[in-house]
Design a protein around this nucleic acid. Structure first.
Length: 203
DNA sequence: TGCCAGGCCCTCTTTAGGGCCTT
C-alpha cells in the first residue's frame, strides 16, 4: 500500500463551529503496512479544556500551559505531512479540525482524507460496533496505549487500516491498495461492495 | 431568546427520524 499519513486530533469538543480547538495531534506514516515515521505534539490554542474532556483524554489545562502554540505545531505537522494522502477514523471529524487549524495559519489542505470508520462499516460488518477500540479488539490488533490520546489512537487507526488492506488482499485478491481506491471504496453502498471489488481484482 | 456538529446509514424510509462515531 502506498504511503498514507494517519492522523488523530484530541480537541476541547466536537466541532470548530462550536468554538472548540485542537489540544493534541499525532500523525503516523504508514508504508507497505508498516509505521515508518511519527509526529506527536500537544498544542496550546489558548482555550480552556472542559472538565469532562480532561477526564476523557487526560489532557489538562496545566499540560497545555507549557505546550507549544497551536500555530507552531500546525506549521510543523503540515510540513511533516506534506502532500501525503490522509486517513483518520471518522475522518469527517479530524478533517474539520485539520482544515480549521490550517486555515488559522493561512494554509489549505491539498490532499483527500480516507476514513477507516466508513471502510470498517463495509468490510467488518460483523463487529459489535465500529468504535476504534472495539474494532481493534475485534480484529485482535495490539492496543497501543491510552485510548483518547492522539498517538495511541493514530497507531490504532493505522493498524486497523493495515488489517483492512490485508483482508482486501485475502478475500478479494487485491494486490496494490491505493489511497484513491480506499477513498472510492468508502463511498460504495455496503450491499454493492463485493461487485465493486470484483472490478479491482488483480490491481 | 435560545440554540449550539454533521455526515453516514438503517428503517417502522424517500414529503423522515434517529442512532452511530469523533472530542
Amino acid at each position: 500500500m502506498e504511503r498514507i499519513a494517519v492522523i488523530d486530533f484530541e480537541t476541547t469538543g466536537i466541532s470548530p463551529s462550536s468554538s472548540c480547538r485542537a489540544t493534541e495531534i499525532a500523525v503516523v506514516i504508514l508504508e507497505r503496512g508498516q509505521i515508518v515515521d511519527r509526529y506527536q505534539s500537544l498544542m496550546n490554542a489558548g482555550v480552556r479544556v472542559p472538565g469532562f474532556i480532561e477526564q476523557l483524554t487526560g489532557i489538562s489545562n496545566a499540560m497545555l500551559r507549557s505546550a507549544p502554540p497551536a500555530e507552531r505545531v500546525m506549521n510543523e505537522v503540515n510540513e511533516f505531512v506534506g502532500t501525503t494522502p490522509l486517513l483518520a477514523h471518522n475522518a469527517a471529524f479530524d478533517q474539520k479540525f485539520w482544515d480549521f487549524e490550517l486555515g488559522l495559519i493561512r494554509r489549505t489542505r491539498l490532499q483527500k482524507f480516507a476514513c477507516s470508520l466508513l471502510l470498517a462499516r463495509r468490510l467488518m460488518p460483523a463487529a459489535p460496533n465500529h468504535k476504534l477500540g472495539t474494532l481493534t479488539s475485534f480484529a485482535q490488533l495490539p492496543h497501543t496505549g491510552k485510548a483518547h490520546r492522539a498517538m495511541a489512537d493514530a497507531e490504532m487507526a493505522a493498524n486497523l487500516t493495515t488489517h483492512l488492506a490485508q483482508e482486501l488482499r485475502r478475500t478479494h485478491g487485491l494486490r496494490e491498495l491505493s489511497h484513491e481506491l480506499l477513498c472510492g471504496l468508502q463511498k460504495v453502498p455496503a450491499a454493492k461492495i463485493n461487485d465493486h471489488l470484483k472490478k479491482h481484482r488483480g490491481f
